[in-house]
């Protein structure tokens, strides 16, 4: 009896603490300036949206772009973001805000991958679409976050949420340079990038639905391939990948993979750094990337 009493005491304290702590964490999450907290809890006005995975995070540096182009922009990319999640975030954005003028979508690794979903479980209390997706693809994580609500805030993403509580997350970018020794040791055989895997049917379906949503809302959609470090660039692979996406989406893909070339512009083999992102923005300005109103074939 004494044993059962003690166990019940521990369980009750656990749930009471869980309720109290998660309630406060939810308040923090709502007040944060991180991109998806802004998306779900605040109103946004953006002329241009950038979306994609970590390569888009580190390629489109919106503070610099806004200065150069004099429009308002938001980067909604996130590390490992897959096509179905890009679709979800674009839809959520359009439900809550006015349609932007342009969406720039980085097309690397358009995989049908739901692993990153567990980072966004803190929003499942406020987004039905996200909740359904998590329930379908990571049911154990979904149920665990229902059982212990604090678990919904157990992610690297929530640490970022805390970090961006009182500051904008739009200056999130790599600020270091690839180690020169590492660069020297890259072999030609390393050029086969997993990131250039051919996209699967489900991701392509997501991309097609994004294209349709953009058409319906009169949004200009631009598909791009972000810069890749010269030693990792395999032209044949890149051309085949770009062509494949163009054929299946009936859209042009702007290949920016060779635009940025210096080693000092990269944080690693596939991610630009701040300097590289600024260099790319200058190139986009010079080449009139945003002047071309045509986007659909």
């Amino acid at each position: 009896m004494k044993l059962i009493k003690k166990i019940i005491f521990v369980v009750m304290v656990f749930f009471a603490l869980d309720y109290l702590i998660s309630d406060n964490l939810h308040k923090i999450s709502s007040a944060s300036n991180i991109r998806y907290s802004r998306l779900f809890y605040q109103s946004i006005h953006a002329d241009v949206i950038f979306i994609g995975n970590s390569r888009a995070v580190n390629t489109f540096y919106t503070p610099y772009i806004e200065k150069q182009f004099s429009f308002q922009a938001i980067n909604l990319a996130y590390n490992g973001l897959s096509a179905p999640l890009m679709e979800l975030f674009i839809n959520e954005y359009l439900q809550r805000n006015e349609a932007p003028d342009t969406i720039v979508l980085e097309v690397t690794a358009l995989k049908n991958d739901y692993d990153v979903l567990k980072n966004f479980k803190q929003y499942t209390f406020d987004s039905k679409a996200l909740m359904l997706l998590l329930n379908k693809h990571n049911p154990e994580i979904y149920y665990a976050s229902r059982l212990a609500k604090t678990f919904a805030y157990n992610s690297e993403y929530f640490l970022r949420t805390l970090y961006y509580l009182n500051r904008s997350d739009q200056d999130w970018i790599n600020r270091y340079q690839i180690e020169p020794d590492f660069y020297e040791k890259i072999q030609p055989s390393d050029k086969k990038l997993d990131l250039l895997e051919f996209v699967d049917k489900q991701s392509m379906d997501s991309l097609r639905r994004i294209i349709n949503v953009c058409r319906q809302n009169n949004i200009r959609l631009k598909l791009v391939l972000a810069p890749i470090l010269d030693k990792m660039r395999n032209k044949e692979d890149i051309d085949a990948y770009v062509k494949d996406i163009e054929n299946r989406s009936h859209m042009d893909v702007t290949d920016l993979s060779a635009v940025v070339n210096e080693i000092s512009y990269f944080a690693d083999t596939i991610h630009s750094n701040e300097k590289g992102a600024e260099n790319l923005a200058d190139y986009l300005l010079k080449s009139g990337f945003f002047d071309n109103k045509e986007s659909f074939k």
Binding site: V10, I21, N154
Partner: peptide, 12 residues
């Protein structure tokens, strides 16, 4: 112990 269980859920 209850607090440690919360930490496991939050930080694990």
């Amino acid at each position: 112990s209850a607090f440690v269980m919360i930490l496991i859920a939050f930080w694990g």
